[in-house]
């Protein structure tokens, strides 16, 4: 029998994972701070486009199931990243605000792929007004216990508002591109960004500017005190192999090692042995 659209999307092997670096830019020097994992739907379908994919998922009210499918695909892709690269993952507020067992799933899935939980930042997207705020904050607290950081996506737009800043207490505000566009020429946009930067500082959060469109806007955003930038002018979202070819990301030395134990070798033991050998090389074991 032919699979339905939703059944196809719920199969993580049909999803592709792209990565877009988030750069720390200081004094004109940029370095990769972390990467955001971005999902594309099944190839050669309407859902390859992320905006159409997630609009459809929300119409079907299938956020929790699809977020799990996406995280499985992300974990598989992240195994090929070096261990020291932090990874941002998008999760719907509705998923975190339901009793969907997401935290348990998240923990088990990362463990199955031998990935440390504290390298993940969860970007909360699409806060639905009906979302259970107390359950949302409880879920966030559980995730924080595992070292997971929280980012609030699309700050300033839709439901990503002051209440969410208080409820989620995010480590990062992700400033929507709407406020950053033409910042250089628009004093009103600069006023909005300045106020959000000041608020973030008071709330002890960092600000990430998304979709910076020009070098002039990049200079202006830096002048306003934003050091973290995610923008196509710096690097577009692309498959990991392409990022590695551009030299933004080094390949993981453990990428070819299976996550789960086969013939007594798995990624965790491999990494431990490698770390041990480095310690010996630097005389730390003596």
């Amino acid at each position: 029998m032919t699979k339905s659209i939703l059944e196809t999307i719920l199969d993580p092997t049909t999803l592709s994972v792209f990565f877009q670096p988030i750069f720390e830019v200081r004094n004109g020097i940029k370095r990769v701070d972390s990467v955001e994992a971005l999902i594309r739907g099944p190839r050669k379908t309407n859902f390859y486009r992320a905006d159409i994919l997630f609009d459809y998922v929300r119409r079907k009210k299938a956020e929790a199931a699809v977020d799990q499918s996406c995280f499985t695909a992300v974990c598989e892709a992240v195994t090929a990243l070096p261990e020291d690269i932090r990874v941002n993952v998008n999760v719907h507020a509705a998923t975190l605000g339901q009793n969907s067992g997401f935290v348990d799933f998240f923990r088990r899935c990362a463990k199955r792929h031998s990935l440390k939980l504290d390298r993940f930042t969860i970007e909360i997207v699409e806060h639905a007004p009906s979302c259970d705020a107390s359950r949302l904050t409880a879920t966030i607290a559980q995730l924080r216990d595992f070292g997971v950081r929280i980012a609030l996506d699309d700050v300033g737009l839709g439901q990503s508002n002051y209440r969410m800043m208080l409820d989620c207490d995010p480590e990062y505000f992700k400033l929507d591109g709407y406020f950053v566009r033409d910042l250089n020429r628009d004093p009103k946009r600069r006023a909005v960004v300045s106020s959000l930067v000041a608020l973030a500082k008071t709330l002890e959060s960092a600000v990430v500017a998304e979709a910076v469109g020009s070098e002039e806007d990049l200079a202006k955003i830096s002048e306003l005190g934003v050091d973290l930038v995610q923008a196509n002018i710096l690097c577009a979202a692309m498959p990991l192999e392409d990022l590695q070819k551009l030299g933004h990301i080094e390949p993981s030395p453990f990428a070819d090692v299976p996550a789960e134990s086969q013939h007594g070798i798995d990624r965790v033991s491999c990494i431990e042995k490698y770390t041990e050998s480095l310690s010996v090389a630097f005389g730390e074991s003596s």
């Binding site: 659209i5 309407n46 609009d55 119409r59």
Partner: peptide, 16 residues
């Protein structure tokens, strides 16, 4: 030409 097989798919395509 694009094609959609169900209502929600059509609505998502029409949105974008």
């Amino acid at each position: 030409v694009d094609c959609a097989e169900e209502l929600e798919e059509a609505q998502s395509l029409l949105t974008y």
